[in-house]
Amino acid sequence: MQVAGIELPGRLWIGTGGLTSTRLVGEIVEAARPGLVTVSVRRTSDTGSGGLLDTLRGLGVRILPNTAGCLSAREAVLTAQLAREALETDWVKLEVVGDETSLMPDAVELLDAAETLVRQGFTVLPYTSADPVLARRLVDVGCAAVMPLGSPIGTGRGLDDPRAIEAVRAAVAVPVVLDAGIGTASDAALALELGCDAVLAATAITRADRPAQMAAALRAAVEAGELARRAGRIPRLTTARASSPMAGRVGT
């Protein structure tokens, strides 16, 4: 798949949220073979080296900084600018949440920040509510993809409203990446079956009992979902439809 003209090596994207050890990153990346890996941007007192950054660079994966934790457009824009400087990428996963309890996107601040960052030359991938109207507005201001949530961050509930995800898919021509809420493999497969181009999973992997194994499961699920979508599923019917011929039955 491509985002902003760049070919990404996989449809499973992984987040580093919930990682307890940098050592685990190698195992997870090897199992997930991710399209990219997201990181947050935080204060540091260590000016020597960034352990996580060095590890990810060593693994050769594309790094996507995010603005996780930002509550206003102003904070998110500054965080994105710092990320561009520190990580030497103009890609940013734009997150602006309305409060720290629901962690739901703040649509007004999000759109404002997206517009500002696009104008400053960023490739903006916004984390958004599963709302086709907002998704279209984000694309109108120049976002390179949209990342609707399946369910609230960290809940692992999967896709609360699959029809909303389908509606976002239908509303925009840019890549749609299902973000937030993935709990297990079937959630990821469903996202791809519904037409999402990729899935971002973080704590589904990092907080699983066996993270690398879950990463492998999600990779297989994403591939299965994409294959199934291309294969064209049969319609859902309300009544039974025989699959065996009526002719030639014994005793008739």
């Binding site: 949220g17 990181v39 947050s40 204060r43 007192s45 996580l52 900084p65 995010n66 520190a86």
Partner: peptide
């Protein structure tokens, strides 16, 4: 970073220093 050396500090300046961290 190229301008750090030529950027003087003043009383009460607020400096932020960030790096990549696990998250999101």
């Amino acid at each position: 970073a190229a301008s750090w050396e030529s950027t003087p500090l003043s009383e009460d300046d607020a400096v932020e220093l960030v790096t990549a961290h696990q998250g999101g």
